[in-house]
């Protein structure tokens, strides 16, 4: 029981970290990014390859993962930042698909669909069992809290205020002399870095990385986390990460309690419940459980 909860705490941290990244891109920057799974894949594979093939120590590998994800995010944003929301959503969805395809087919580099086993993690080897799991969960949540505090400061700083202004109306922001594209690209890159770091954490936690992990369902889970928690603020993303992990796990027990249906029907009900939860949250709590507090018009734009 305890071991399970500790494991799920690590998974919740990873989801929360991705939700924070998405919050920066979407919540603050207003860019509908459905390509999270792609950024997570870049981070996970970067960390895995550096760790397994080159023996790079995990802090460096994770840093490199974040930087590479940021780089790919910046390129994607540079190509697409001028697009309006709906277009951007579809293009980024395509980005994630292409990353998954590349991971599946560039066998020489990524090991193809078989993935890369033996990804190193901090303290693997020196700690075992629950001790390792607990240490990992603590490290993951430590990173989440650091990222959240940084993001909270960023949100309150001029950068965050400008970003919000761009989100509300980029023409006004442009007229006010803000270089809209540069702000957008930076926000996208920084958010992608967090998603990439989360991908690296996931690869380390499982000791494994494979293309199948980076499906559209991953993106949907993180979007659900952010929407449930409340986009725009920082603590919503954290709460959302916990809630979504709790929800997806709780549905297992709900499915176990249904003896009258076949295994495939129980599985269908379980996924259906998760989809329904997202729809209900969007209706009942459109601003999330911890909504963003309304702020005064930034003085930079007055």
């Amino acid at each position: 029981m305890l071991a399970y909860l500790v494991q799920m705490a690590s998974f919740a941290a990873i989801t929360a970290l991705m939700a924070l990244g998405l919050d920066l891109i979407w919540g603050l920057g207003g860019m509908a990014n459905l390509g999270l799974a792609g950024s997570a894949a870049v981070g996970a594979y970067a960390a895995a390859l550096l760790g397994v093939k080159l023996g790079v120590a995990w802090p460096l590998a994770w840093l490199a993962a974040a930087l590479l994800a940021a780089g790919s995010g910046a390129i994607l944003a540079g190509l697409t930042a001028r697009l309006r929301g709906d277009y951007l959503a579809i293009v980024t969805l395509g980005f994630a698909e292409v990353m998954q395809l590349a991971a599946s087919n560039e066998v020489w580099l990524t090991g193809g669909t078989g993935g890369i086993p033996g990804v190193p993690a901090p303290w693997r080897g020196s700690l075992h069992g629950l001790a390792f799991d607990a240490a990992f969960a603590a490290l993951a949540w430590g990173l989440v809290v650091v990222a959240a505090l940084l993001l909270a400061r960023l949100g309150a700083a001029p950068f965050g205020r400008v970003l919000r202004a761009i989100r509300e109306d980029d023409t006004v922001a442009a007229v006010a002399g803000k270089r809209v594209l540069r702000f957008k690209v930076r926000a996208f890159a920084a958010g992608s870095a967090l998603v990439g770091l989360a991908g690296a954490l996931g690869a380390a936690l499982e000791g494994f990385v494979a293309p199948d992990s980076f499906s559209a369902l991953l993106t949907l889970t993180v979007v659900l986390a952010l929407c449930a928690g409340g986009p725009g603020g920082v603590w919503g993303a954290l709460l959302g990460g916990v809630l979504v992990t709790a929800l997806t796990e709780a549905t297992r027990f709900a499915a176990d309690a249904l003896p009258a249906v076949s295994a495939v029907q129980a599985a269908a009900l379980r996924q259906g419940m998760i989809a329904l939860a997202l729809i209900l949250i969007l209706h009942l709590r459109p601003a999330g459980i911890l909504p963003e507090r309304p702020r005064a018009i930034p003085k930079e734009l007055r």
Binding site: A32, D86, V223, C227, I279, L282, P286
Partner: peptide, 12 residues
Amino acid sequence: AALAPAIASVAA
């Protein structure tokens, strides 16, 4: 841009 209904439609 109508993102909330778009997201809901992904869930749908």
